[in-house]
Amino acid sequence: MQSKSPTLLAIDTSTAMCSCAIYHKEKIFDAHKLSPRQHTQMLFPLIKQVLKQAALSLKDIDVIVFPKGPGSFTGIRLGVTITQGLAFVNNCKVIGISSLWHLAQSVYQSHNKSPVIVCIDAYMNEVYWNSFKVHDDLMLPLQNDAIDSPGNIKHIDDAHNSVYAVGDAWQKYDLQNAHDNIVSEQKLLEHLPLAKHLLPLALMEYKKGNIENAEQAMPVYLSGKTRWKKQPV
């Protein structure tokens, strides 16, 4: 259990939105830019920008936070590689956050929607998915992240609330018509998370002591129906 309030740097290169954010002394500084296929060029200027806003240097960062997957192979792997490099050079710890959890938290903070089923395209007629429900302003997973065929997505049993569809797979596979009580809004289907939305999840993990060394930063891929598979960078 950690008691000290950490200084966090969060980065996200997992979608078309390149973003980073700093948490320092209960303040958040963030920067982002929509830059498909230009994340390598864009991320470091954005990091420099938020460090300047916060009047910090990389040596002041305690923990680097990153989305670890599942999701885009290229984007997630890039984020992990940059996280490892920065953490090694600056002697930082790291915290990896599920990309599905990150997206759910981002939708809640941006649009105040809960509960949600996050479902993103895994290609080859498969989807990555999980269900989330808010508690004390944090979206909490209702099961483990999974990969499955689109027709096997399980509905949330919540008679008192609408359940919101989040992620690109809903529209691609026309999943909303196969579920009762699902609310489908275009802004949620197309929502791109920001690095600042990693911060509340990372703070919770930090307080639990769920921090790792730089060499332990790895992308997480789902293989098969429910099996996690980690691969070194």
Rank of each mutant, 00 (worst) to 15 (best):
P45H: 11
L43K: 04
L142R: 08
A31F: 12
L34H: 14
N90K: 04
I156W: 01
V118D: 15
D136A: 09
I64E: 08
L100N: 04
T40L: 13
S114C: 07
S131E: 08
V63E: 10
P115D: 12
I64Q: 08
S98P: 06
I153R: 06
D137A: 10
L103P: 06
V118G: 07
G79E: 09
H111R: 14
S149T: 14
D121C: 09
Q143P: 01
I156R: 02
N161F: 00
S57W: 04
D137N: 14
K52H: 14
I97F: 03
L43C: 07
L46N: 11
Q38K: 13
K48Y: 09
K59E: 14
Q53D: 13
Y123G: 00
D148I: 02
C119L: 13
V94N: 08
D157F: 03
V118Q: 12
A104L: 10
K33A: 12
P70E: 01
N112A: 14
Q109E: 15
K93A: 12
I120S: 13
K59V: 05
V63S: 08
N161A: 01
F132H: 09
G96R: 03
I47A: 12
S72W: 02
L56M: 11
S57H: 12
I76A: 05
S72P: 00
G69K: 06
K52G: 11
L103C: 08
S149D: 06
L58P: 08
R37I: 04
Q84D: 05
V89Q: 08
A31W: 09
A104K: 04
Q53N: 07
F73A: 03
V118C: 13
T81P: 04
S110V: 01
G75H: 09
M42Q: 15
R77Q: 06
C92Q: 14
S99A: 06
H155R: 07
V65P: 07
V63T: 15
I64K: 06
N125A: 13
Q84T: 08
H135G: 00
V116A: 12
I64N: 04
G85M: 12
L103S: 07
S106Q: 11
I156G: 00
S35K: 08
A87N: 04
K59M: 05
Q41F: 01
D157H: 02
A159C: 00
L103K: 03
I147W: 00
P36I: 04
I64G: 06
V63L: 11
A54N: 10
H111S: 12
D121T: 06
S131F: 03
V89D: 03
G69Y: 05
K33H: 09
K33S: 13
D137V: 00
F44D: 11
H135Q: 13
V89G: 05
K113M: 14
V127H: 07
I153H: 01
